[in-house]
Design a protein around this nucleic acid. Structure first.
Length: 364
DNA sequence: TCTTCTCGCACATTTGAATGGT
DNA sequence: AACCATTCAAATGTGCGAGAAG
C-alpha cells in the first residue's frame, strides 16, 4: 500500500511556493495513476480517506461566477468544450470573484472538472442522447491558479481568471491539464484552500463551489452548430471565422493590424459583458422527448440576478443540484445522476453550490 | 457505413523584444 | 539613464475540413 503521506511530503519540501504546488499536483496525480478509477469513481474509496475530516472555510465566504450571461447562453444550448491532445482552453473562461475571505490569511485557488453523471453521450438528430456507460474518470488533476498562494485581501481585489486552464484527452499530457473523456458530461469546480504555507495545503480549511451553468459535454469536434456559432461570435481567437471577414485572404497584415488597433476594437476585446447577442435561448432548446436531461435548469449563481422564467418546452430539465444529496452516484441504477459530493450534504447559495462535505470531493 | 478523432491550415490575438522619442 | 509608447515577429489560440481509425 502506498504511503500517501510520503507523496505529499514531496510537495511540502519543494523550495518555492510555486514549485511546491507543482509537486503537490504531481503527487495528487500519482495517486490517480496508482489508484485507477476502473471500478469505483468515488475518490474516497480508492484513497482510503473516508476517515479524514476537513475543516471548512468560513461559511460567509462568497464566490460569484463572472460572465454569467455568457455562461447561461451556452448552458441553454448545451455547452460543448473542445478537447485536444495538446490541451484546449475553456471558453467561456472560468472567472470568479470572491468576498468575505480573511484579508490576512493566505489561500490557494484550485480548479478541477468532474463528471456529472455516469453516461457516455452521442449527438443524434440535433439532440444529445445516452449511448452507453461512461469511461472511468481520472480524478486528481487540478489546475492551480498561478497566483496561489496569496492573501485574502489580494484575492478579493479583482476577479480571478482561470484562462490558462486547459482540458485534454491525452493522458500523457502535462499533469496540470485536466484529463477528460470525449462525449462525457462534466462540471467545473472551484476549491479554495486556506493555506498559509505549503505544509497546510492538505490540512487547511477547504470549501468547494460548483456552478450549474458550467456543465458541459467534452467533444473533439463541435456537434451543435448553435454552440459553434456562439463560440465564434464571442471568442476573440475565433474572430477569423465570423462572417464578414471569413475566407478573405487578400487583406494585408498591416491593414489587419491597423484594424485590430482601432480604439473601439481594443476596448471591447475581452469585455464579456459586451458580447454580441445571439438568437433567443428558448427558441433553440431541444424539446426532443428522447433526450436525457442534458442541461440543468438555469439557476442563478450570481447575487442580484432574477431567476429566469420556467420554459414550458424544457420539460426534461431536472433539478438535481438543487436537492441536497438527491442521488447515489454509485448505485447500480445508471439513470441516476452522479453527485460528486456523495456522502455530504449540499446546499445552494446565491453564489454557487457549496459543498458542506468535510472530507470527500477533492483529495488534497 | 457511421461515428469519432487527428492533423495541417488560415486567421486571429497575445506576448515580449527592439526601437525611438521625451 | 529612465520611462513610456509604438512596432514587429514569434508564439499561441481558434474553427475548418479532409482523411484516418475503429
Amino acid at each position: 500500500m502506498l504511503d500517501e503521506n510520503n507523496l505529499f511530503q514531496q510537495a511540502a519540501v519543494a523550495s518555492s511556493a510555486y514549485a511546491s504546488m507543482a509537486a503537490f499536483t504531481a503527487a495528487a496525480n500519482m495517486y490517480s495513476s496508482f489508484y485507477p478509477t476502473t471500478t469505483n469513481p468515488d475518490p474516497n474509496h480508492y484513497l482510503g480517506c473516508n476517515e479524514m475530516q476537513r475543516e471548512r472555510l468560513d461559511p460567509k465566504v462568497r464566490v460569484k461566477l463572472e460572465g454569467l450571461d455568457l455562461w447561461k447562453q451556452f448552458h441553454s444550448l448545451g455547452t460543448e468544450m473542445i478537447i485536444t491532445k495538446n490541451g484546449r482552453r475553456l471558453f467561456p473562461t472560468f472567472r470568479v470573484s470572491v468576498s468575505e475571505l480573511d484579508p490576512n490569511m493566505k489561500y490557494m485557488f484550485l480548479l478541477d472538472i468532474v463528471p456529472v453523471d455516469d453516461n457516455r453521450y452521442k449527438y443524434q438528430e440535433s439532440a444529445w442522447v445516452i449511448s452507453g456507460k461512461a469511461e472511468p474518470h481520472a480524478y486528481g488533476r487540478y489546475f492551480i491558479h498561478p497566483d496561489s498562494p496569496q492573501t485574502g485581501e489580494q484575492w478579493m481585489k479583482q476577479s480571478i481568471l482561470f484562462n490558462k486552464a486547459k482540458i485534454t484527452n491525452n493522458p500523457m499530457q502535462n499533469p496540470d491539464q485536466i484529463l477528460l473523456n470525449s462525449m462525457h458530461r462534466y462540471v467545473i469546480r472551484l476549491h479554495i484552500v486556506q493555506a498559509s504555507d505549503e505544509y497546510s495545503i492538505r490540512t487547511g480549511p477547504l470549501s468547494t463551489y460548483t456552478f450549474n451553468e458550467t456543465v458541459f459535454i467534452a467533444v473533439t469536434a463541435y456537434q451543435n452548430d448553435e454552440i459553434k456559432n456562439l463560440k465564434i461570435d464571442n471568442n476573440p481567437f475565433a474572430k477569423g471565422f465570423r462572417e464578414p471577414t471569413h475566407g478573405k485572404k487578400n487583406s494585408s497584415k498591416a491593414l489587419k493590424r491597423l484594424q485590430s488597433s482601432l480604439p473601439l476594437d481594443k476596448s471591447t476585446k475581452y469585455d464579456e459583458t459586451h458580447h454580441r447577442l445571439c438568437k433567443s435561448d428558448t427558441s433553440l432548446l431541444s424539446s426532443n422527448s428522447i433526450s436525457p436531461p442534458i442541461h440543468q435548469p438555469i439557476v442563478d449563481s450570481t447575487y442580484g440576478h432574477p431567476e429566469p422564467e420556467a420554459d414550458p418546452t424544457n420539460f426534461n430539465f431536472s433539478s438535481t443540484y438543487q436537492q441536497p444529496l438527491a442521488y447515489n452516484a454509485y448505485s447500480n441504477d445508471s439513470s441516476l445522476m452522479y453527485n460528486p459530493y456523495i456522502g455530504s450534504t449540499m446546499s445552494f447559495s446565491p453564489y454557487g453550490y457549496y459543498s458542506s462535505n468535510n472530507f470527500s470531493a477533492p483529495f488534497f
